[in-house]
Design a protein around this nucleic acid. Structure first.
Lengths: 143, 143
DNA sequence: CTCTTGTTGCAAACGATTTGCATTTGCATT
DNA sequence: AATGCAAATGCAAATCGTTTGCAACAAGAG
């Protein structure tokens, strides 16, 4: 298992180098992101953050998420219907399979699909800036 | 070119058969949907509807869109950032390429990608209920 | 330690959408 | 054609996720 404390230090260093001030709320949020393996939304991050620093405010969470997104430290996913959910941007690119019944998110990746996307965009005269591929599914009943 | 008036009549018949009351606002909205080739959002539909019936209200537009969605007559697309946009559900399935600069939506379809999606879901133990594939791109600069 | 500037918490504003409610309307029934 | 009632409407207020204005505050360069 990866050392999340170390990961957090990495985050902080990276951001400080980018000229970002290291404040108490930001440290709390980075800690949460470094430790988390799921895709929490702003409210969930806020809840976890309050446990570390009870003076933190929801707006700061939102502002920080935007900042981290701009700096490329996290990725924002706007799944159908609900609020934006976030994840660290350190891993490789992947898409999502969302369990309709539980809201669980499973990550997957397919080079072949990416290739096809590029071909399609190209044939339409476009360059892809980013894309969104989400499968909404239900666990296959045991047969 | 397809006769949109006829298409509209088709809509109405289909809905009446499903036990849906045909009201003035609903007729207006169906007319708009039958005539439209783009992907308008609720506000845009409301604007066009007011031109046909100036007593229509925005909430009725929203209620009607939900009704039509439930009845399977239209499809709702929640593109990144903006409001939901709608289109008729009569055509074949397709995905979307959204022009980042203009908001234009281009439809495309790839059997190959659909196949791959199914394979992936299957290998993860899921059945796909629906999916969302959106390419966000920028028109290729002439070179 | 001080100064400057960025950051915070709070509350109010926001855009998209939904809802409660009193009123109107579709339409099946007389 | 007149009636009755459930369903649909318009309006305003509520809701949800998110952003913003602002005065107080704190990071970190000097």
């Amino acid at each position: 298992m990866v050392d999340s404390a170390e990961k957090q230090r990495g985050y902080e260093a990276q951001l400080r180098d980018a000229g970002v001030r290291m404040t108490r709320p930001r440290r709390a949020i980075l800690k949460i992101l470094a430790e988390t393996a799921d895709h929490p939304d702003a409210m969930e991050i806020f809840r976890r953050a309050v446990a570390l620093d009870d003076s933190i405010s929801l707006s700061t969470v939102y502002r920080t998420m935007k900042l981290l997104e701009d700096k490329g430290a996290i990725q924002r996913h706007a799944f159908a219907g609900g609020p934006s959910r976030f994840e660290q941007a350190d891993g490789a690119h992947h898409d999502h399979l969302i369990d309709i019944d539980t809201g669980n998110v499973i990550e997957f990746q397919s080079d072949r699909i990416e290739e096809l996307q590029n071909e399609i965009a190209k044939s339409l005269g476009y360059d892809i800036v980013h894309h969104r591929l989400e499968l909404y599914g239900r666990k296959r009943r045991k047969r």
